[in-house]
Design a protein around this nucleic acid. Structure first.
Length: 851
RNA sequence: GGGCGAUUAGCUCAGCGGGAGAGCGCUGCCUUCACACGGCAGAGGUCGCUGGUUCGAACCCAGCAUCGCCCACCA
């Protein structure tokens, strides 16, 4: 294509879909075990099939795609393995709401079988939408290997894992306090409870004495307790005071009456009680509070459960049976008041647990659940994190994860939900309990519960590669190279993958973990649908182009969370346009420029050396997941060095080698930029006549032979000298050619061509401008009328340089500095002083001449 | 109650022991033949506060303030 035929701006809409298809057709995304190559593997954190991709997915997708493409171009057998998660409780909630909205029915109205079917359908639609979005992002995933946590093979892996853990004695059934969501009618894990500050009340409840020992220590005929949940009074089995609480020595051993349910209970002593809180007397409700459960266990009290699974009061609730928990609370308080059993009621702000998925208030509730004991699984995981077998970026998250693992409680893996992997435990006709993938025989009935969705996710890095089968893929690609994820699922997911990987594969699941930022809304708060402040990445792709958005996200990504700003997408778009026009410019140079005999110029050597340094730095930064800094480095090279200077030099002062090097370096820059900005670079590469697809080209490697410190210094000085002249022109308003004395240590050809200064050996006449530019002085001949301005300028310059000299002198006259600072620092300070002193002298001399 | 992190130019953020940086925005000049989603030249900051360590601190340490986020069973 000739330059005229290439439009002035890049049109992503016309390019992206076409190029994605070309990539797919070429088989570039496909990776297979190849003993001749090093493997590189990233498993995509499977998005939930609950809805569309959000900005976090876009960022993480950009990160993973960048790393995968880079690895591929570097010659690794690079596999980015895609998939999706069935998202048990999350999807079930979405479908429930939808059924309620569309049919006015609850899931119980619909029935388990049909409900699961509705979930399956929803998941399928949602999944295809998500996969389409991944394509829009440019994700170079191997589509042949798409995995889904409800696929037959994956389900088999989940069941295998459960059965193995069960048979190893690590999974057990236990009747314990769990976080119960009455709306979902299921247990959820500690990690799925959100605690929020709520304005509540602290109710004083009086328990009349039920023995004949008269009034209590305070003279009352009752003992008073404070509680935030008066309805749990119905389940009280004891009162308890601190054994060291002198006030209540006589209370211990007495009996009181639980209001309404007419149960006589004892007052006991337990050191758990904080004498400072409330009255210093605590009620014990083992079925509805984890601490009370422990106290109950310690003292051998039974648990009295007063709640049904849906949160209504059960048959143990005396006069309140059938009421909702909220209704029971107000009714009970009213009755207490009527019976003069209500003490003081205080306003009380406290934290209340809410269901992460549906928002309902969580009840600590006694129920029968399946538990996975964690200690044995956590030990090896702690080991590999402590000895840094797994590198975590940033490292602080490695330490956080260690802390979490050290304080790990057993994991409740059963959920009383319908959508998910059914627990493979079978109950036989004669009370047998068997864990097996399939029914052990006639009369066996399967457990009704499903597994926590994170149980299946925990197997992701190896179940996706074929486990429990012994596959070639597993041998070749496991352990995977890197996992990139948001930090909110470090515990929920990442820590558990490490434990399961070690358990089932005997080695870590990934060598590195990248913990990326959370993309916040523009106002700095979390994006959420309910707040209506979400940004749809697809809209951004449409408006700015996918590459621009990807570049912007990577440019802004760091270990800090960041508020998304459209400016970054605009920055990316500006960069794409700049590159596009560089491509237009470069395209006029013929493909095959004869090498010729002529040596490359200093400028040529400079750009090669500078490119070389960029490759080194950029590659290192990507390796260390420093995406933001990597984007800065490559942006600076492409724009501030290559476009701003080398391209201009190529027009004004080219060598015979320049066209070839211009083209070569630009093409190599496209290779560098391909991983973060794949579409536009691919398109440009094609326009420039690249034979194969850029995706399959080699990533540039640093070549020490191209390092040229001397050329870098020369061009650095030259650029400063040119800028000094331009600055002078801007200040003095002089257009047209200037005459100047040849500055020392610059490339005269380049200097002259870019500054418009005709270089002569010596300047005639006394009027001249003296422009300091780094360690170079540029002297320009001046017309008489500019003399006055030059005096002004010189005075300013002199005072600036005097400041420099004073600073350096100050430092060097400090004995401590000279003695203790590293020699190199002292030397460079001396050098600066010398230079500036010399410059000062010149400037003063010049000023004297003018006055 | 513990832990982690943040506080740098008007805005969004880099830098994390040796002379304060980027992008956007702002000012001036330039529509010249890759690009006005551009070029050139500028203005703009006692790097939250107070101490300390150091020859030297935005950077290390301590304390304080403000703002986030995680974890925790105080009824």
């Amino acid at each position: 294509m000739s330059q005229a035929e290439i439009p002035k701006t890049y049109d992503p809409k016309a390019v992206e879909a076409r190029i994605y298809e070309e990539w797919e057709r070429s088989g570039a995304f496909e990776a297979d075990a190849d003993p001749g190559k090093e493997p590189y593997c990233i498993v995509l954190p499977p998005p939930n099939v609950t809805g569309a991709l959000h900005m976090g997915h876009a960022l993480n997708g950009a990160i993973q795609d960048t790393l995968t493409r880079r690895a591929r171009m570097k010659g690794y057998e690079a596999l980015w393995l895609p998939g999706a998660d069935h998202a048990s409780i999350a999807l079930q909630n979405v479908v429930e709401r939808r059924v309620l909205r569309e049919e006015g029915k609850t899931k119980w109205d619909v029935g388990r079988e049909r409900f699961v079917e509705l979930c399956r359908e929803f998941a399928e639609n949602s999944r295809s939408q998500i996969l389409g979005q991944l394509k829009r992002l440019g994700a170079s995933v191997d589509w042949r290997r798409l995995r889904y946590t409800m696929d037959e093979g994956y389900v088999d892996a989940v069941l295998s894992a459960f059965v193995e853990l069960y048979n190893a004695g690590l999974i057990y059934r236990g009747n314990r306090i769990t976080n119960w969501c009455p709306r979902d009618r299921s247990a959820i894990s500690d990690l799925e409870v959100n605690y929020e500050e709520v304005d509540g009340k602290l109710y004083g409840v009086r328990y009349p004495f039920a023995d004949d020992r008269g009034p209590g220590p305070d003279g009352n005929d009752y003992a008073q307790v404070f509680t935030t949940r008066p309805e749990t009074v119905l389940g009280d089995v004891a009162l308890v005071v601190n054994p060291d609480d002198g006030r209540y020595k006589d209370l211990v051993g007495r009996r009181v009456m639980v209001p309404f349910v007419k149960r006589k209970i004892e007052v006991i002593a337990d050191s758990y009680v904080d004498p400072e809180f409330g009255t210093g007397v605590l009620k014990v409700t083992p079925a509805h509070d984890p601490n009370d459960f422990e106290i109950g266990e310690r003292h051998g009290f039974p648990s009295v459960n007063v709640l049904n699974p849906d949160g209504t009061i059960n048959e143990n609730g005396g006069p309140f049976v059938g009421m909702t928990r909220e209704g029971a609370r107000s009714a009970l308080v009213k009755r207490l008041d009527e019976e003069r059993l209500l003490g003081e009621v205080r306003e009380y702000r406290h934290r209340v647990g809410h269901c992460d998925r549906c928002g309902a208030i969580i009840e600590p509730w006694l129920s029968e659940q399946w538990w996975l004991s964690m200690r044995e699984l956590a030990e090896p995981a702690l080991e590999v994190l402590k000895n840094e077998q797994i590198t975590v970026y940033p490292d602080s998250w490695r330490r956080e994860t260690i802390r979490w693992l050290e304080n790990l409680q057993d994991w409740n893996v059963s959920r009383q939900l319908w959508w998910g992997h059914r627990i493979p435990v079978w109950y036989g006709p004669n009370g047998e309990v068997v864990a097996a993938k399939e029914s052990p025989g006639e009369g066996y009935e399967q457990d009704k519960d499903v597994l926590d969705t994170w149980f299946s996710s925990a197997l992701w890095p190896f179940a996706t590669l074929g486990w429990p089968e012994k596959t070639e893929d597993l041998e070749y690609f496991y352990p995977t190279s890197l996992l990139s994820t948001a930090r909110e699922i470090m515990y929920l997911w990442v820590a558990r993958m490490i434990m399961m990987g070690l358990r089932f594969r005997g080695s870590i699941p990934f060598r590195k973990v990248n913990v990326h930022s959370i993309v916040l809304a523009e106002d700095g708060t979390k994006m959420s649908k309910s707040k209506g402040n979400t940004i749809d990445p697809l809209d951004l792709f449409d408006e700015y182009g996918t590459d621009a958005v990807r570049f912007g996200l990577l440019y802004q990504s760091s270990t800090q969370d960041f508020s998304y700003s459209y400016e970054r997408a605009a920055l990316g778009r500006g960069f794409v346009t700049k590159l596009w026009n560089m491509a237009r410019f470069v395209s006029v140079y013929p493909m095959d420029v004869p090498d010729g005999r002529e040596e490359p110029s200093a400028s040529d050597r400079w750009i090669l050396s500078s490119f070389n340094e960029t490759v080194r730095e950029y590659d290192r930064l990507l390796e260390e997941c420093e995406f933001s800094e990597a984007m800065r480095v490559v942006y600076d090279f492409a724009w501030r060095q290559f476009a701003d200077w080398y391209v201009e030099i190529s027009k004004a002062a080219p060598s015979k080698q320049t066209p070839r090097i211009l083209r070569k370096v630009f093409e190599a820059t496209l290779r560098l930029l391909h991983p973060p900005m794949p579409f536009a670079t691919e398109e440009m590469y094609g326009i420039l006549g690249g034979e194969k697809l850029l995706i399959a080209q080699e990533f540039p490697r640093p070549d020490p032979a191209l390092d040229d410190a001397e050329a870098e210094r020369l061009l650095e000085r030259t650029r400063l000298a040119v800028s000094a002249v331009r600055s002078f022109r801007a200040d003095s308003g002089i257009d047209g050619e200037l005459t100047g004395k040849a500055p020392e240590g610059v490339d005269l050809g380049v200097f002259s061509a870019l500054s418009g200064v005709r270089v002569v050996e010596d300047l005639d006449g006394s009027a001249r401008a003296t422009l300091p530019a780094g360690d170079v002085v540029v002297e320009l001949a001046l017309s008489e009328e500019l003399r006055r301005e030059e005096v002004e300028r010189l005075r300013k310059e002199i005072s600036r340089v005097e400041g420099e000299v004073r600073r350096a002198e100050g430092k060097l006259s400090n004995e401590n500095f000279v003695e203790r600072a590293p020699a190199a620092v002292v030397a460079s300070e001396r050098e600066k002083l010398d230079r500036n002193s010399g410059l000062l002298e010149t400037l003063k001399l010049r000023l004297d001449e003018y006055l």
